[in-house]
Design a protein around this nucleic acid. Structure first.
Lengths: 130, 130
DNA sequence: ATTAGTGCAAACACTTTGCACGGGT
DNA sequence: ACCCGTGCAAAGTGTTTGCACTAAT
């Protein structure tokens, strides 16, 4: 993890390492505040600002991705690969979806628009809420 | 428009009619605040609360749809049909996309999840910003 | 020594809530 | 007379900013 940060030109501070460690393999797509609350007990000096800064830097460096599925909060995913997400209408949790949408080619240009990418977000009810 | 409101069990107030009229054929996907600002000069007593209430009711009744593409603000579209949207990374405007994604079937169930629907949102740069 | 990074408090933008008043039905 | 709808002010939520201090290189 130390090397990852170095690669992005970021200093390896304890805060960043803690955030990275918590994110590692995490499939809960936590928000900044959730990360902060999880880390705060063991890291009393941590500030929300730092969590935001770190997530911003990591996302910018492509090490994590920001999920734009639940508009009420920014969510982050340690898996930088493009994949699909599912938002539960009831409990508001976000899950990874293990599907392939065949024949779904993203056009590079549509009319006058220069397309950089797209989000495909599913919603409904999760196993616990349906 | 009077009838539309009646059909939803909503009283035809001047505020609602003004909002409906402004929305009519509008492809700018305005936010509540944008609608409020447009209407305020000709309708000084209008309140933001009423704009929110009205948009909420109309969306609930299926007369308009809420667009979840720009997480920094709620946006509304008078076209209740499902269609694709494009968000410009620079000017933050939202456009309708006139494309059909063939062979894109939404699965009703994925793993343990009960899928109600999905959003497909494109982003990039618009004609003015690219 | 330099400068990136941190943490606090305050500011922010958008949205929601509580509530008294007013106007259709 | 009822009660839906309005508009104000205040509260709420998640995020961002300014800035002095701290610590990594």
């Amino acid at each position: 993890m130390n090397d990852m940060l170095k690669k992005l030109g970021l200093r390896a501070t304890p805060q960043r390492l803690a955030i990275l460690k918590l994110l590692q393999g995490n499939t809960a797509h936590p928000s900044a505040e959730e990360i902060y609350n999880k880390l705060k007990p063991d890291f009393p000096s941590l500030s929300l600002t730092t969590v935001y800064n770190t997530l911003e830097s990591l996302a910018e460096g492509g090490m994590i991705q920001e999920i734009r599925i639940d508009c009420s909060r920014r969510r982050f995913d340690p898996n930088p690969q493009p994949h699909y997400h599912f938002l539960c209408n009831k409990c508001r949790r976000v899950f990874d979806l293990d599907i392939n949408l065949i024949n779904f080619d993203i056009p590079k240009q549509v009319g006058d628009f220069w397309v950089e990418g797209c989000f495909v977000n599913f919603y409904g009810y999760c196993m616990d809420c349906k």
